[in-house]
Design a protein around this nucleic acid. Structure first.
Lengths: 165, 165
DNA sequence: TATAAAAAGTTTAAGCTTGAAATATATTCC
DNA sequence: GGAATATATTTCAAGCTTAAACTTTTTATA
């Protein structure tokens, strides 16, 4: 009891509030995870039953819609932030059902360009519209203002954990 | 040009603001998805390289830690909101490496109880502590207040899309 | 110009996930 | 008691995902 107390108390308080922040952040993360999984499950189910499709296919097609001239496999996997082996498989299946085509790139026989077929574009347009409705319904309880607000706050969350944006 | 215009204009305005909300909600959803995936990827990487484990294993062990007497497969899959076939596989692997044990339930030979072994409990304790640190680091830019605030807002988001909480 | 290094994609092995079918046991009810 | 139904779990087929190994082609460089 004769030792100087201030530094000890300070560091203890620091440790405590550090711990409290940590717990609060952990809670936030678990909540985000729960909500995200729930929404993903609902969307997956909808895509499956109503369009016989999947979320990964939807993501790929959404990326391809933005690039009428197609994308190289490389660009696609970077844009979606998934492994290139992953993209290979998804594209294989999209080619199989006629939504996507692989196009040779003249001047580089290693690379392939990949783009939506007209049928793929049509199919995706329908799905995308439905998708927006589903999301709108799922987020029914959130006003546009709240959505905007949460979105802004989310901006401070980790977006670039090493990977480029 | 001679038809009454007011109702038409009203409905057009309604459609427009409906559309704006819808777009705002879609943006929110995409942002949530992006952040969540980024954090999940970082945590998965950490669990893999530092503990030779995975997120699903972590989730299962976390659920089991709360139930010292173990849980039935059924309860586990309900609690984690994943299919029971899924849980079977994860538990198989956890049993294989000695973290979990299956226990017969007397009086019902259909069901099994599943619980952490002492080794599993120890291993999980270490991982859980590291996990909290990782999350804390990933969410570094978020103050405890912001975390709390976002968490509150997230509460209004879909939590019960049919499934029990 | 040979050879090494880099780049683009695919393949592979392992694990996660689902929905549906199958198996085994328990319960209900006639 | 025995048939029908319900419950608990596993198995299966298909698809997603990753990291690592591999193949092919291009580019750099000695």
């Amino acid at each position: 009891m004769t030792a100087p107390q201030t530094p000890q108390v300070n560091s203890r308080q620091a440790a405590l509030s550090q711990d409290a922040s940590s717990k609060e952040r952990l809670r936030l993360w678990l909540r985000m995870l729960r909500v995200t999984r729930q929404v993903e499950a609902a969307l997956r189910e909808k895509l499956r039953t109503e369009y016989d499709s999947t979320l990964p296919r939807f993501d790929v097609m959404a990326a391809l819609l933005q690039a009428p001239n197609g994308l190289k496999m490389n660009e696609l996997s970077k844009r979606l932030r998934v492994s290139n082996g992953n993209v290979t498989g998804i594209i294989d299946r999209l080619v199989e059902d006629g939504s996507v085509e692989r196009i040779a790139i003249e001047g580089d026989r290693r690379a392939t360009r990949v783009r939506l077929t007209p049928a793929g574009r049509d199919a995706f347009t329908l799905m995308a519209e439905a998708h927006e409705h589903w999301v709108n319904d799922l987020f029914e309880g959130v006003t546009a203002e709240d959505a905007h607000h949460i979105g802004e706050l989310l901006h401070r969350l980790p977006t670039h954990t090493g990977a480029p944006s």
